[in-house]
Write a protein that binds this DNA or RNA. Structure first.
Lengths: 337, 337
DNA sequence: CTGAAAGCGCTTACAG
DNA sequence: CTGAAAGCGCTTACAG
């Protein structure tokens, strides 16, 4: 690394080329009305100094930056999947991507992070933003697309068909013969958590199975939150024969709790998750879950944001993507008593 | 989303609070020398307007932003692992993270992307940057740490012990009885590619096995680049009994080619990769590979960058992290002819 | 075809 | 304790 001292500014280039910064700016941005010889001089000065325009200064002055933002509070496996989809959609679109993450990995991040980051970026840096699983409603002076929005959020959003996914899970368990099915819910401020619980309740009701409130634990999607809930569910004499956790992270913890208690999965207990994170396929036994293609969520959100920024979006402002039940080794018929 | 019109500026706050922007700035940044009543007025105006300072404007004016950057050209699985490690190291450090990625997913990205992005960010936005697998040497006016540097790069870097990892692979294969071992190399501009090939060569030499140049294919780490190379290697009558590919992506493609050709792995052919990406454990058969903990690479790079930015780094400027051979189902003793 | 000047939203000496 | 002014690195009317 050449410890380059101060960065090279447009002023340095102007001085070396013997022109004004206005002219350098014109050359850098390919504007018309600069003589060929001046262009050559400026180009050579730029080359010699290794000049590159400052993203910050440019974006402060210009309205359009051709940079899209994505705001997240952490990098989990699903974040990576989302990012892959976003990048694919942005490929050769002329947009670069900036991901902004705050210094807190999980758990203790302050409420409202999404709004703070969004505002700080969208002032001038980005032309629009994707926000991943915010706590609440978001507002912005530039277009926003939310992936996995808060309950009752009006912002344009992309989300999986959580209701259908959860319904499929419960129907799968019912089909195997389960009747006492526990549920570990996610953070209720998220629309996804609400829809998954609704799917659980309605599928049971549909089958004429009474919803037993004592079989529902209130988690928050954080894997750790599931530990005491799973323990409470599995410790009781009349424990459920199956547990449906509203996320894979919580389901995997449930698997651990079952192991601790000496309960065999799937022999004595079926466990199902939601998300289909890579770890789920590797679990022992492999986890039955619902795939919601985070990749596609990212892809569609970026596609929508691009159009929104260009002012040419025609579609609906809430996109719902299909989910798919993935049956693996953690579910089986309940043991006959 | 409240379509907020123009973003709220410090000027708006100043006007509403009936003070100058200088005073607002002092309140926002918690500087001393503002009367309690003024603070209260400004705070209430901020609250009322939902003001958040512009990252861009602040960073243009200030020397320090408490934002660290990471420059990458794509999001692959390993990128996500690196990011997790980086975030863990930055946790509660007071630094936020900005990841900058250009709009090209793989393959066709223009050479020199890393330098362009680095310069654009480090002018003022970030206090320092991590650069992921650059094509060449990088220079910057602020501290830089390179993960997986280019060959002969002098910049501070964090890298896996590729030499030891590759050596372990070849020793494993030799131990199984293999003597004709093919190699699919990575992009030679990267130090990692060079070291992996060196490990391959020296381990063979060490065991008194002649290095057959026709058994070496020149890939570039891009999975697709391995397809014709693997085919050439496996199509010949005197094909190798084992192939060591310098990345998991290329090894997985080799597995596919073998399948196409009706060659049984590991019965007729052993295949080994390098990286240990999640997909490798899921392959059929599961891939023997070298784990280089991208998580730790990210963690250590961020730790180093933090200290470098604070001017308190004492350690070596090139960190080499241990690798670990992971033996799975894709390797076995060669069939006796 | 080119430059001087204003201004994007902030922060920071400098006065008062 | 507070404000007017300069300036961070750019871009864009406005003159010439």
């Amino acid at each position: 690394m050449a410890e380059g001292g101060a960065p090279v500014t447009m002023n340095d280039v102007a001085r070396l080329a013997g022109v004004s910064t206005a002219t350098v700016s014109r050359v850098v941005n390919g504007r018309y009305g600069v003589s060929a010889s001046t262009i050559a001089q400026v180009r050579s000065a730029i080359e010699r100094l290794g000049y590159e325009s400052s993203l910050v200064a440019t974006s402060l002055r210009r309205s359009r930056t051709n940079v899209l933002g994505l705001v997240t509070h952490s990098f989990q496996s699903y974040t990576a999947e989302v990012l892959k989809g976003v990048m694919e959609a942005l490929r050769q679109s002329g947009f670069d991507l900036i991901v902004y993450a705050n210094g807190d990995l999980y758990g203790t991040y302050s409420e409202g992070w999404e709004q703070r980051h969004l505002t700080r970026l969208s002032g001038t840096l980005t032309d629009g933003c994707i926000v991943l699983t915010p706590w609440g409603e978001v507002r912005s002076s530039t277009p926003v697309v939310v992936i996995d929005p808060a309950k009752d959020s009006a912002a344009p959003s992309v989300t999986a068909d959580n209701l259908a996914g959860a319904t499929a899970v419960v129907e799968h368990l019912l089909g195997l013969g389960h009747r006492r099915i526990g549920f570990i819910a996610g953070r209720s401020s998220l629309a996804a958590a609400w829809a998954r619980e609704e799917g659980y309740r309605s599928a049971l009701a549909e089958a004429g199975v009474r919803v037993d409130p004592t079989l529902i634990g209130r988690g928050d999607f954080n894997p750790e939150s599931a530990v005491p809930l799973a323990r409470a569910l599995l410790d009781r004499a009349d424990r459920p024969t199956a547990v449906f956790a509203a996320s894979d992270g919580m389901a995997l913890k449930t698997l651990e709790v079952a192991k601790d208690l000496g309960i065999d999965v799937p022999g004595d207990l079926s466990v199902v998750g939601f998300d289909n994170i890579p770890e789920s396929a590797l679990a022992e036994p492999a986890l039955t879950t619902v795939d919601q293609s985070m990749y596609r969520l990212g892809y569609e959100a970026a596609r929508m944001l691009k159009s929104l920024v260009s002012g040419e979006w025609e579609g609906p402002s809430h996109i719902v993507l299909p989910t798919r039940l993935v049956i693996r080794g953690s579910t089986a018929s309940p043991a006959r008593p």
